[in-house]
Nucleic acid binder design. Structure first.
Length: 719
RNA sequence: GCGGGCGUGGCGAAAGUGGUAAACGCAGCGGACUUAAAAUCCGCCGGCCGUAUGGCCUUGCCGGUUCAAGUCCGGCCGCCCGCACCA
């Protein structure tokens, strides 16, 4: 008797069978026999409260791999946990008066139930949340150990301040000059912050990128670009004196002459400059300092014009549009330095296009062979000396509006004349180091990772500030430093600061009254080692057995952030002896899946409408409630703001989890975006029905399969 | 500007190392079943000519290599993503 496939009966039945058999629990190394291991992991979710279709796709892809490995006889680890610290919990607390912890754990319960309905082959026995004190306590222990080994430190620096979330952001978390979560324009602020010494591993992180053959090329490139290694020369320009600048008023000229402050400056250290083009040194016509360069600050202190210029630069802001549109601004300091090879002097300017964050915050300007320098020189009437000419040009070669940056022959350059660029670089560097004016240097774009956050819902940084003993680590026996439960969210800023008693402690060394650190750790720290915790809570041989993750699956939006931090963390953990992972690479294979997209719908009055609020009538779409026509817009990533999301629970309730999973896997290749359509899901459902009827039509499926080695099933299914 | 990726029917897309382009699915059309509809099943479904056997054309564009090119090479065009005043 033919039956119809009813996922609402079939799916719970088999889920219960898998659970009671403990089918998906990973086997510890010692009991695994000869089976090779496979650690399959999807990026763990933030417990926002609801699963979305993007989750379904991400975890369905990982589940296919995990099941395939299991079928091939691997000992598979495929666990699940919760990336549970973060701002949304605090926002919920402020908006609704719920405690962030209560909110988070309730969300976890809801989402766990949804996950279980999806029928994934997960090992739930290793589940945890990063906001569990056991988890963040261990993280605090690691933090202190990293500190002992000099991989964590505190320094005052200019930081990215998000005025909406009221917290500091790492460089990686500032996108187009805006906070990655809040979208607010990021401000620069001077604060004392905790840093992870990620630059210590810059070279190694870059070399490692080369070995990651099972990563998407795109992600490898993004990592390499972010680390941004460049070889060059760091050199010094010695002071030559101060002169009134051209065009300055008589009054100002006299002021410049008599300034004692300037004299002192001229006795200070020479100006350090980083360059990748020492071959063009003979083309140098000025020096430019960043407005944030210490010298610019010193000058501002004694010269109100400099101070005004710095303010002008600061007012331009740091956002992308600003930088794009920004004119080259310059201020001539009236100071001069000596050219290293020739008997001439170069004026020292302050220029807005020089970044303090890269190199030394000062450059030598070679207008003929650098577009920015050329724009600057043309604007401020500085000389342009061509020193590289194309191979087919003669000595009359000159530069107009475009700098020449291509290959060629060096000329107008004394001992470098006639050399090609590469040879000239080496020759110039040799001469500079011979004269003790500089040395070959490797510069990285990568900055140390600022991890202090002025928020409540995160891992407390386990240190104590004592007036006499300074910064004192919390003794290991006092870990974890727990978050207090009784906090208020009525005042802006960090609730930990406003707590009446939490930060008051005794100094562990001298017992004097002291203060707890109130900053918490960036939540990216939590996600930088969770895969280690999955392998084992403490057993190092078990960690060595499971790591690295063989196949990692997640969105490409973490191409730099999470993946770079994790690669740093495993290296650091290896160094301090917590993890035995010589390669330092946490993820042997990486797969970045495409997004789930959906059509967007807009009502006549401009409201976004959800797919459940519209109906299709022949060729036109109408709003169900009003019957009015609907504007069908672009297919876009599902998002709350455009309201083009679909609820996985509704789909699962109607078609079953297998259909939802089959659709997101089969409609488009996993690495590409998939457009969610009702018709597509119905097609997937029909397919599932057909599979069922093929199987159902077998005379005696179970007997035939075992007796004849699947031949009947094959025949039927091929037919 | 720099870097990475992509371009195949009405749509999502298949085509290990060059070897029958368009598998599979969606939508569409025709048919069976039904009083009817839904569901299910069967057939057709890149373009042009032809009643048909069949012929010609077709993988963004132009050219090249080859017995043979979606696939390899050169040059364009277009789209997507990332980074960007990084010295």
């Amino acid at each position: 008797m033919a039956t119809r496939y009813d996922p609402l009966i079939a799916e719970p039945k088999w889920r219960a069978a898998w659970d009671s058999a403990g089918l998906y629990e990973a086997t510890p190394h010692d009991d695994a026999g000869d089976a090779p291991k496979a650690f399959v992991l999807e990026m763990f979710p933030y417990p926002s409260g609801r699963l979305h279709v993007g989750h379904v796709r991400n975890y369905a892809i990982g589940d296919v791999i995990a099941r395939h490995k299991r079928a091939k006889g691997y000992n598979v680890l495929h666990p699940m946990a919760w990336d549970a610290f973060g701002m949304p919990a605090e926002n919920a607390a402020m908006e609704r008066g719920v405690h962030p912890g209560k909110w988070t754990y309730a969300n976890i319960d809801a989402m766990r139930a949804q996950f279980q309905k999806l029928g994934l082959s997960l090992d739930w026995s290793r589940e945890f949340a990063t906001c569990d004190p056991e988890y963040y306590g261990e993280q605090q222990r690691l933090f202190l150990k990293l500190m002992e080994h000099g991989l964590v430190y505190r320094k005052a620096s200019k930081v990215n301040w998000d005025p909406v979330d009221q917290t500091v952001l790492a460089n990686e978390q500032v996108i187009d000059g805006k906070g990655w979560r809040s979208g607010a324009a990021v401000e620069q602020k001077d604060l004392t912050q905790w840093f992870f010494r990620i630059t210590e591993f810059a070279d190694d992180l870059l070399d490692g990128v080369q070995t990651l053959n099972a990563w998407p090329e795109k992600v490898r490139t993004m990592q390499a670009n972010w680390i941004g290694r460049s070889e060059g020369l760091q050199m010094r320009f010695e002071w030559a004196g101060a002169h009134a600048r051209q065009g300055a008023s008589a009054k100002r000229r006299s002021k410049l002459k008599i300034s004692d402050g300037r004299k002192t400056l001229l006795e200070s250290a020479p100006i350090a400059v980083f360059t990748t083009r020492p071959d063009t040194l003979f083309g140098a016509s000025f020096i430019a300092l960043s407005p944030d360069h210490p010298l610019s600050r010193d000058l501002a202190a004694i010269d109100t014009e400099v101070a005004a210029f710095r303010d002008q630069c600061a007012a331009l802001g740091t956002s992308e549009e600003m930088i794009e549109k920004a004119d080259k601004l310059g201020y001539n300091t009236g100071l001069f330095v000596r050219h290293p090879f020739e008997d001439r002097i170069l004026p020292v300017w302050i220029a807005n296009f020089v970044l303090m964050g890269y190199g030394t915050g000062a450059i030598f300007g070679c207008p003929a062979h650098d577009q920015r320098d050329l724009d600057f020189a043309r604007k401020f009437h500085l000389p342009v000396y061509p020193v590289v000419r194309p191979n087919d040009a003669d000595a009359t070669f000159s530069v107009g509006r475009e700098a020449y940056t291509g290959p060629g022959v060096i000329f107008n350059s004394d001992f470098l004349d006639g050399l090609d660029i590469q040879t000239a670089k080496v020759a110039a560097m040799d001469k500079i180091s011979e004269r003790s004016l500089g040395e070959k240097t490797i510069n990285f774009r990568l900055r140390d990772w600022g991890v202090s956050r002025q928020r409540y819902w995160g891992c407390p940084i386990p240190v104590i500030h004592c007036d006499t003993c300074g910064v004192v680590p919390v003794p290991e026996s006092d870990l974890p430093v727990r978050l207090p439960d009784d906090v208020g969210f009525d005042k802006p800023g960090n609730p930990l600061v406003h707590h009446p008693t939490w930060s008051s402690v005794e100094c562990p060394i001298c017992s004097a009254p002291a203060r707890r650190e109130t900053d918490t750790l960036d939540t990216f720290v939590d996600s930088s080692w969770y895969f280690v915790r999955f392998a084992s809570e403490a057993d190092k041989s078990e960690r060595a057995y499971w790591l690295p993750v063989d196949q990692y699956i997640g969105g490409v939006e973490h191409a730099v952030l999470h993946l770079l931090y994790s690669r740093f963390f495993t290296r650091a953990l290896h160094r301090i002896g917590e993890v035995d992972l010589p390669s330092g690479e946490p993820f042997a294979g990486l797969f970045t899946q495409g997004m789930v997209t959906h059509e967007t719908y807009k009502a006549e009055d401009g409201r976004w409408l959800s797919p459940t609020e519209v109906d299709r009538q022949v060729d036109t779409w109408r709003e169900t409630a009003t019957g009015k026509p609907v504007d069908v817009g672009a297919v876009e990533k599902m998002s709350k703001s455009k309201r083009n999301t679909v609820d996985p629970d509704v789909i699962i309730g109607e078609f079953g989890a297998d259909v939802a999973r089959f659709f997101v896997l089969s409609d488009s290749p996993p690495e590409r975006d998939v457009e969610w359509t009702q018709a597509g899901v119905e097609g997937a459902s029909r397919f599932a029905q057909r599979v069922w009827s093929v199987f159902d039509a077998l005379p005696d499926p179970v007997d035939r399969i075992t007796a004849t080695g699947t031949s009947d099933l094959r025949k039927f299914s091929h037919k």
